[in-house]
Design a protein around this nucleic acid. Structure first.
Lengths: 104, 104
DNA sequence: GCTTACGGTAAGTAATGACTTACCAAGAAT
DNA sequence: ATTCTTGGTAAGTCATTACTTACCGTAAGC
């Protein structure tokens, strides 16, 4: 549920592939596994990581578990990125302007 | 130099700490290592990963190597995130609006 | 010149993590 | 009721990786 977990979760290529598939459309585990180069249990394990990070949710539909992306998860990561983005851009502007030449 | 590398680079807590320190202000390696719970060589290795990912650059200043964040690196990650953000939000809107009830 | 500060690289180690197969529980179908 | 589907969990394995110490090159200071 933190941006740290989101970064770890999305750093793995397989997990990113799963996440991107879910961003297209919600899917059950089995269908995800079919399109993936790894076994179904592996997909389940990845889904747990994504779920713990708050990036996906799961709704039961009979025996099927339909996974879907969770906007708030991405939002948190976005917030973190934007905070640093601002910081970096401010610093960059200083650099360009010459840091002591305050006005243009 | 890709968003994938950026994600891997920023997924590690120590590396994130280094990156965030550099986002505050450019620093030489030794100074970074002082504020860090790991050895100087470890910091060097992390800086290599961050550098390969395009997230930081290095300018030599005598014997010192001053590292600084590289805006373009973050920009790439931001672009990727925003692409998916849009996708996720579009999907979320569909969900809320009821997907077949097209207008409100 | 020699010595000290700075930092990258090498080699080895210990922990993490991504994957597999085997197994088990719960719902659907006949 | 039993059989088949769906998917989570357990246990074990192999690869990756984050870390350490030791070492080497280069610049600065005396």
């Amino acid at each position: 549920m933190t941006y740290q977990e989101s970064l770890v979760a999305l750093a793995d290529p397989t997990r990113r592939q799963i996440f991107e598939a879910l961003a297209e459309a919600p899917r059950p585990v089995g269908q995800l596994a079919q399109d993936m180069p790894v076994s179904r249990p592996a997909v389940s394990q990845h889904l747990k990581v994504l779920s713990d990070a708050g990036l996906v949710t799961c709704r039961a539909e009979g025996a099927r578990r339909i996974y879907a992306v969770r906007p708030e998860g991405l939002a948190q990561l976005r917030t973190w990125l934007d905070r640093h983005w601002s910081k970096v851009m401010a610093r960059f502007a200083e650099e360009v302007n010459g840091k002591d030449g305050l006005d243009d």
